[in-house]
Design a protein around this nucleic acid. Structure first.
Length: 557
RNA sequence: UGACCCAUGGUGUAAUGGUAACACUACUGAUUUUGGUUCAGUCAUUUAAGGUUCGAAUCCUUAUGGGUCAACCA
């Protein structure tokens, strides 16, 4: 089956244009990209964009993508994160060519530093970090060099070796590049290349006590791996000048850096620091809390890798700041889930309906219903029907507004895959709460063999009282009350939505749901899409709501 | 007060000097045994002002607005 005929013509994004031009000019035979996470936190939707971009580009144009952990800061990094990151990338559906670590290059990086020293382009500075900051000047004021910049090459070589040998304490000395203290680009004002940290590294252990800074690790690692297109986010634009300077002075493979605007989503935050706060301060249950915009959270929430990939592709890439409406993401999950989710009926807040004319009191029968009307090969399932059923409390109104298609006194509705019923009597308790609805059914209206000739506008989901099983259902709403918590006054946590989690301890479900598997997706008819949560046990099932169905009905409209 | 990046509907992207397109949202209407799905339709003089040109969202100038940069983080 070919879909090329109606495949939408999509224009190239600016990175694809650059790559096609490079390829056309014969600059490269094949391209090489990399995804360079720092193993100090879990991956989130922002990373998903970068993953889809980097892996997507090499998939499209031929080439490979490396997974490279940017592990140059031992105090914040951990192997736990390495494993979660690898797991998330695989789950998204991508394969890296090589699993690499910046720490693999420590020896080479050290030698590159020596090269720079020998060229008179780097020096050891004994100043305190405060002094260095002070001497750097400000964006509007040039910096000035101190006396350490005049050290001889021999002295620098000896001092740098001493740094590596552990002769100095943390912060006592740093290695700096000798560039230009009056550059309008602050990063070019003799940037730090190495700092001393007597810390245990998750991979190199205690082999090193000096670690390269980002600027002296990232570009060099790119070069070592012969990355052709090194793609990063906009805040690294000013780093490009230094990136190129180092490659030029070191005379190594000329990788090139390109920047795109990171993706933001409405009603959430997308920085590792803020997400870490939410976890540490227990505003959420963990990194994989279904309300988190982390890959692991979204996976647990029931998002599919296909829908996330589609979202990243279709949203495109550019260089301007943006906040993508969460409804766009939700559209892509619905689109995907609508095609694959098994339909099941679950009543969250029940009200009992007694069908007074249904056979004798013990009467029941087995009905069948399609698993998915969108999938002709989806098969059917059996649903027990009886004279006592539950319907959703909100599906009944004693005094309905005009155009209310659900149940009301004297009004008729279709029970999905069953019969048409008519509400004859409303039974209430002393407080006036509806406790039971007495209805009659139309025997000739049986689903599939309806000869009643009656047409009703509303169809309700239901479940037989005596056959129902119970399950816990967790419904999620946006984590924040405002579109962009980070740009709001005060602390972003002030805008946390207190009602982002609603738990239904015992929802009533049709028996077919008993065989639910973790890899299955469900649509609870008229409710939304759900997935089994890892908190499920033999004593009870727990379902997470991935996303609700679109609701076209507005009361009082 | 400096340097750099950016500016197209409510949102995200297109239009590569030839008369604003696609998707989402929202709103109409049709279909429907899910108020879902599907289908049809509606919603922008491209931040502003000048300039170049037969012709400008696109090129130039200025203004305005937003973002980034003064971590021994990445």
């Amino acid at each position: 089956m070919s879909t090329t005929a109606n495949k939408e013509e999509r224009s190239l994004n600016f990175l694809e244009e650059i790559i096609e031009a490079d390829l056309a000019a014969g600059k490269y035979k094949t391209i090489m990209t990399r995804f360079p996470p720092e193993p100090n936190g879990y991956l989130h939707m922002g990373h998903a964009t970068s993953i889809c971009l980097n892996f997507g580009l090499t998939k499209k144009y031929g080439g490979n993508t490396n997974l490279r952990f940017d592990d140059t800061n031992p105090v914040t990094e951990d192997t736990e994160y390495v494993e979660s990151i690898k797991n998330d990338i695989k789950w998204l559906g991508f394969e890296w060519a090589n699993e690499l670590y910046a720490s693999d290059y420590f020896e080479q990086l050290y030698n590159m530093a020596i090269t720079l020293i020998k060229k008179g382009l780097a020096y050891v500075d004994d100043s305190s970090s405060e002094a260095i900051a002070e001497q750097k000047g400000t964006p509007t004021q040039v910096g000035r060099r101190n006396e350490y910049a005049d050290r001889s090459i021999e002295e620098n070589l000896q001092l740098f070796a001493g740094m590596r040998a552990g002769k100095y304490k943390d912060g006592e000395k740093v290695l700096r590049a000798k560039v230009d203290m009056s550059s309008p680009n602050m990063l070019m004002r003799d940037p730090l290349l190495y700092r001393i940290k007597h810390a245990h590294h998750h991979r190199t252990g205690d082999a090193w006590c000096i670690y390269p800074m980002y600027d002296f690790a990232h570009g060099q690692s790119d070069s070592i791996e012969k990355i052709t297109h090194s793609i990063c986010t906009l805040e690294f634009v000013p780093h490009r000048e230094l990136y190129d300077w180092l490659i030029e002075k070191l005379e190594i493979y000329p990788s090139h850096q390109y920047e795109f605007a990171r993706r933001n989503l409405t009603y959430t935050v997308m920085s590792k620091r803020k997400l870490l706060q939410l976890v540490n301060e227990k505003h959420v249950a963990g990194w994989d809390d279904p309300r988190m915009p982390t890959i692991s959270g979204m996976r647990r929430r029931g998002y599919t890798p296909e829908s996330i990939r589609e979202f990243c592709d279709r949203i495109g890439i550019a260089k301007r700041d943006n906040v993508v409406d969460i409804s766009l993401l939700e559209f892509f999950v619905r689109e995907d889930l609508n095609k694959r989710a098994l339909r099941r009926m679950v009543v969250f807040d029940p009200v009992k309906v007694v069908i007074t004319n249904y056979a004798d009191a013990d009467g029941e029968e087995i009905l069948t219903s399609e698993n998915n009307p969108e999938d002709p090969n989806g098969g059917t399932r059996e649903i027990p029907f009886s004279n006592e059923i539950y319907i959703e409390r909100e599906d009944f109104m004693e005094n309905p507004p005009k155009k209310y298609f659900r149940l009301a006194p004297g009004q008729m509705v279709r029970l999905k895959s069953a019969y048409i019923i008519k509400c004859e009597e409303v039974i209430k308790d002393a407080e006036g709460n509806v406790t039971e609805l007495r209805c009659t059914y139309i025997p000739e209206s049986k689903s599939g063999s309806d000869t009643s000739g009656i047409h009703v506008k509303g169809t309700l989901h239901w479940v037989s009282v005596k056959h129902a099983i119970t399950a816990e259902v967790r419904e999620y709403d946006r984590l924040f009350k405002v579109e962009d918590p980070s740009s709001e006054e005060g602390d972003f946590k002030d805008y946390i939505n207190p009602d982002s989690l609603k738990i239904v301890r015992a929802a009533y479900a049709e028996p077919a749901l008993k065989n639910a598997h973790f890899d299955e997706r469900f649509q609870f008819v008229r409710k939304g899409y759900f997935v089994l949560d890892k908190d499920s046990s033999t004593s009870g099932m727990v379902f997470n709501k991935t996303v609700g169905l679109k609701d076209g009905w507005k009361a009082g409209k």
